[in-house]
Simulated assay, not measured.
Amino acid sequence: MTLLDRVLRRIPFIGRLVHEFSVVNVLDCATRLAAQAFLGALPALFVIAAFAPQGVRDQLVSSLHSVLGLHDDALDQVRQVYSADDTAETNSIGIVGVIVTLLSATACSRALQRTCERAWQMPRAGARLVAWRWVVWLAVWLVDLLLQGPLHDGFGVGTALGVPLQLVSGTFLWWWTQRFLLGSRIPWLPLLPGAMLVSAGVLGVVAWSAIYMPGAVERSLRQFGPFGSLFVLLSWLIVLFTVITIGICVGYVIAHEEPVARRLGTPPPPTPPTPPTPPAVAGSAA
């Protein structure tokens, strides 16, 4: 018996985690989510900023500074993007471009919905049930992103209040996200452990970003020019969505642990269908 087998036998929880990670395929889901956010959700930020008043743009820059920890050249680059002339941007984008960009951004919502369904071993929901939810979730995510700057600063009080506020608001966001994108097919309480883990994990990524991102972005800008920051941002998104996916998966396993499941009223996992018995071949008994 290998060391891994002995560990899995002594700690069944670890075995259930490993099984859940393999079922969900964590890295595959995280990479897909990062790609959809990079190609769809981030361009939507630029399109919305093109039509937003300057106050909203400034708030968005402040929030990106809080989340990514950008400063100096990298932060100046973001400010330049969100300080361009309104008329020039709106004319170049156009109404059709706005609609196409926003519809493309819902690909991130769809990918996140599928991740939640895989983690909770749920079948795909019908388009009528969830299509409108993709747009609503994207709108809520944009509002939450705008609030990250004030939350990080504790609405002027400081990080001593900002950290608990971010933790609580993140818990509510990811609690609602799972419930909403799963089409209310899972009760509220079983979704709470995953929401708390994701919120804590995202807060950890934000704290790590303040240390890692400024130097990484500046090095990339020196080596690759303006495109260097894009490479770092994509890597950051992969880390972020890996943490989110792991949090949802671990929350599922915790919610199905026997003592926790009784308290939360977790529904039992779906039973895989029994394969049909092949018909007996005539004369086989002979």
Score class of each variant (00 low, 15 high):
residue 146 L to P: 06
residue 147 L to Y: 02
residue 147 L to D: 07
residue 147 L to P: 10
residue 148 Q to C: 09
residue 148 Q to I: 04
residue 148 Q to F: 12
residue 148 Q to R: 12
residue 148 Q to A: 13
residue 148 Q to D: 08
residue 148 Q to P: 10
residue 149 G to Q: 00
residue 149 G to H: 11
residue 149 G to E: 08
residue 150 P to I: 02
residue 150 P to Y: 03
residue 150 P to W: 02
residue 150 P to M: 05
residue 151 L to F: 05
residue 151 L to V: 08
residue 152 H to P: 01
residue 152 H to D: 14
residue 152 H to V: 01
residue 153 D to V: 03
residue 153 D to L: 11
residue 153 D to P: 01
residue 153 D to T: 14
residue 153 D to E: 13
residue 153 D to S: 11
residue 153 D to G: 12
residue 155 F to Y: 15
residue 155 F to T: 02
residue 155 F to H: 06
residue 155 F to C: 05
residue 155 F to E: 05
residue 155 F to P: 09
residue 155 F to R: 05
residue 155 F to V: 06
residue 155 F to Q: 06
residue 156 G to K: 07
residue 156 G to R: 08
residue 156 G to D: 00
residue 156 G to V: 05
residue 156 G to Y: 01
residue 157 V to N: 07
residue 158 G to S: 05
residue 158 G to C: 05
residue 158 G to T: 08
residue 159 T to C: 10
residue 159 T to D: 14
residue 159 T to Y: 12
residue 159 T to M: 11
residue 160 A to E: 11
residue 161 L to K: 07
residue 161 L to N: 05
residue 161 L to Q: 08
residue 162 G to W: 02
residue 162 G to K: 03
residue 163 V to Y: 13
residue 163 V to A: 13
residue 163 V to T: 15
residue 163 V to P: 11
residue 163 V to D: 12
residue 163 V to S: 13
residue 164 P to A: 08
residue 164 P to N: 07
residue 164 P to Q: 07
residue 165 L to F: 10
residue 165 L to I: 04
residue 165 L to V: 09
residue 165 L to E: 10
residue 165 L to A: 13
residue 165 L to D: 11
residue 166 Q to L: 14
residue 166 Q to A: 15
residue 166 Q to I: 11
residue 166 Q to P: 06
residue 166 Q to N: 13
residue 166 Q to H: 12
residue 167 L to C: 05
residue 168 V to F: 04
residue 169 S to V: 11
residue 169 S to T: 13
residue 169 S to K: 03
residue 170 G to V: 00
residue 170 G to F: 04
residue 170 G to C: 05
residue 170 G to M: 01
residue 171 T to Y: 08
residue 171 T to F: 15
residue 172 F to R: 06
residue 172 F to G: 10
residue 172 F to H: 07
residue 173 L to Y: 14
residue 173 L to D: 07
residue 174 W to D: 04
residue 174 W to V: 04
residue 174 W to C: 02
residue 174 W to N: 14
residue 174 W to E: 04
residue 175 W to Q: 08
residue 175 W to Y: 08
residue 175 W to N: 06
residue 176 W to P: 09
residue 176 W to L: 14
residue 176 W to T: 13
residue 176 W to G: 13
residue 176 W to F: 15
